[in-house]
Design a protein around this nucleic acid. Structure first.
Length: 426
RNA sequence: GGAGAGGUGCCGGAGUGGACGAACGGGGCGGUCUCGAAAACCGCUGUGGUCCUUGUGGCCACCGUGGGUUCGAAUCCCACCCUCUCCGCCA
C-alpha cells in the first residue's frame, strides 16, 4: 500500500513512477476523496469537541430544567455527528478501496520495459550442460523410473496433480531439508508457520483483495490456503513494533503452496512445472529502510548459492518495470537450465517490497535511540521452488540409460543413494 | 462439542455511566545524591488521525473486534473472535 501522504504531497512523482509500470491508476480520484475525507473530519471533530465539552458541563449541572434543555440540544448535535460520521466512513472506504489496488512504485534503478521480453539478463553462471545423447524431459524420465505418477494424481485429485513415489518423494524431501539447512547456515531462522491463514494476513502480504481468484478458501471459515510462505512470514510481525537492534531479521520456512492458476489455464500443463500444489523453501527479511537494498543483494546471493551448490547452470534476470509483481519495487529472478524441456525455468524470485507490505501489515520498528515508529522494509525470495528444482535435477543429472545421479550435497538426505534407478513397482 | 472464568497501557493489576488516556505497582528513560555503583527521592514514559499561528501546540479517536443504548460508555445491551480451566472426542 502506498503512503497517502506521499500521493498527496508528490502526486506527479507517484504518477510518473506508476506510468513506468505501464499503468495509470485513478490518482486524481484518490486525491479528491482524500481532500473530501479530511474536510469532513475537521467538521465532525469540531462538533465532537463541542459535544465533549457540553457533556462534561451537563454532568455538573444542578438545575433540572436547564439540564433537560441542554440535553435536548445535544441530541440534535448527536444526529448531525452521526450523519457526518457516516459520510467520513464512506469516503474512507472509497479511498481505501482504490489505494489498496495500486501496486508498489518501482525502484528508480529498475529498467524500463513493457513485459518479460524487456527483462535484463544480469549474468549467467555456468554453461547449460551438454549431452552426448538426447536428454529426456522429466515427464518421460519420472514415470519411466517409477518415481513420478501423473495418472494417479489426476485420479485422486484432478489435473495438475501428481504423486511422487519412492526415490522421487525422497528426493523432494531431501531438497527441502538440504535447503533449510543451507539457509540456516546463511543466517536464517527456521520457521514452521501455519499453512492456512486468515484474510487479514493475505491482505497484509498483498494477496487480497487483488488476487482472490488465485486462492483456495475454506467454505465455512475465514481460512485460506497459503499461496506462498511469504504470506504467513509477512504476517509474523503484523501490528508489532520491533526494536531496531533486533534488525535485520532473517527467516526461512518450508511450506506447500496452493494456487488455482486460473490465469494460466492451459499453460504449462505438461509435467510438474505448474501445479495447484507445490512445495517451496522461502527466505524472508525484515529490515530498516536504510539496509533493504543491500539485503536484496545478499538474499539474491543466497539463492544463487543454492543453484550453484546443486551444480546447476543458472542466470540472473532483473525484471523490468512492466513485469514487476504487485508488491515489489525491485525483483531478480533466477532461472535454471532444464535440458529435457529445453527451457530456462524460473526457480526463484527475490524481491524488495520496501515498506509496501509492512504498511499493509502495520509492521514497524522503533528507530535506534527512540522516536516515532517507522514502517519496516520486507524482502522475500524463494530459496528455490521445489518442483522446478526437481525438474532441473532430474533432467540435468540424467544418464544415457535413463537413471539419474543424485547431486552430491543431497546424498546425506537420501541415505547415501548415488543413483536413482527404476523402482521395482509403482 | 459441553460447562465455567476471562480479555484494560511495555508487564502485573484497579476501574460497573460524567473528575478515566485510564489509580497503584513493576519495568524503561532522564535527573538529584555518589569517586563509582546500589539504595532513596524527583520527573518523564502509548498509538493513529487531523488542524494550524510547527508547538514540551489544539482537537478527535483508540480499554479484544463490530454494532447498539445514552447529552455522555473501559463501565450497560447484542453478536463475534481469542485465551485459560474442567469434561467429552480425536491424530
Amino acid at each position: 500500500m502506498l503512503d497517502i501522504e506521499l500521493i498527496r504531497e508528490r502526486p506527479e512523482e507517484v504518477k510518473a513512477a506508476l506510468a513506468r509500470r505501464g499503468i495509470e491508476p485513478p490518482l486524481d480520484r484518490v486525491l479528491e476523496l482524500d481532500a473530501q475525507r479530511r474536510s469532513l473530519l475537521t467538521e465532525v471533530e469540531n462538533l465532537k469537541a463541542e459535544r465533549n465539552r457540553a457533556s462534561k458541563e451537563i454532568g455538573k449541572m444542578k438545575d433540572a430544567a436547564l439540564r433537560e434543555e441542554r440535553i435536548a440540544a445535544m441530541r440534535a448535535l448527536g444526529e448531525r455527528i452521526d450523519a457526518l460520521d457516516a459520510q467520513v466512513r464512506q469516503a474512507n472506504e472509497a479511498l481505501h478501496a482504490l489505494i489498496i489496488e495500486i501496486p508498489n512504485l518501482p525502484d528508480p534503478s529498475v529498467p524500463d520495459g513493457a513485459d518479460e521480453k524487456d527483462n535484463v539478463v544480469v549474468r549467467q553462471v555456468g554453461e547449460p550442460k551438454g549431452f552426448d545423447f538426447e536428454p529426456k524431459p522429466h515427464w518421460e524420465l519420472g514415470p519411466a523410473l517409477g518415481i513420478l505418477d501423473f495418472e494417479r494424481g489426476v485420479k485422486i485429485t484432478g489435473s495438475r496433480f501428481y504423486v511422487l513415489s519412492g526415490a522421487g518423494a525422497r528426493l523432494q524431501r531431501a531438497l527441502i531439508a538440504w535447503m533449510l539447512d543451507l539457509h540456516q547456515r546463511q543466517g536464517y531462522l527456521e520457521k514452521y508457520p501455519p499453512f492456512m491463514v486468515r484474510s487479514e494476513t493475505l491482505f497484509a502480504a498483498g494477496q487480497l483483495p487483488k488476487f482472490r481468484d488465485n486462492l483456495y478458501k475454506d467454505h465455512e471459515e475465514d481460512l485460506w490456503m497459503v499461496p506462498t510462505a511469504e504470506v504467513p512470514l509477512t504476517g509474523l510481525h503484523m501490528d508489532e513494533i520491533l526494536e531496531a537492534d533486533t534488525l535485520p531479521r532473517h527467516y526461512t520456512a518450508y511450506t506447500p503452496c496452493f494456487r488455482r492458476e486460473k490465469m494460466s489455464a492451459g499453460r504449462d500443463v505438461r509435467g510438474i512445472k505448474r501445479g495447484h500444489q507445490f512445495d517451496k523453501v522461502e527466505m524472508y527479511t525484515f529490515c530498516t529502510p536504510e539496509t533493504s537494498d543491500e539485503e536484496l543483494q545478499r538474499m539474491l546471493s543466497h539463492a544463487e548459492e543454492t543453484c550453484a551448490e546443486l551444480g546447476l547452470a543458472y542466470r540472473v534476470i532483473e525484471l523490468c518495470t512492466g513485469d514487476l509483481g504487485f508488491n515489489a519495487r525491485k525483483t531478480y529472478d533466477l532461472e535454471v537450465w532444464a535440458p529435457g524441456c529445453g527451457e530456462w525455468l524460473e526457480v526463484s524470485s527475490v524481491s524488495n517490497c520496501g515498506d509496501f507490505q509492512a504498511r499493509r501489515a502495520n509492521a514497524r520498528y522503533r528507530p535506534q535511540g527512540g522516536g516515532k515508529p517507522r514502517f519496516l522494509h520486507t524482502l522475500n525470495g524463494s530459496g528455490l521452488g521445489l518442483p522446478r528444482t526437481l525438474i532441473a535435477v532430474l533432467e540435468n543429472y540424467q544418464q544415457p540409460e535413463g537413471t539419474v545421479l543424485v547431486p552430491e550435497p543431497l546424498r546425506p538426505w537420501m541415505g547415501g543413494l548415488e543413483v536413482i534407478e527404476p523402482e521395482a513397482s509403482l
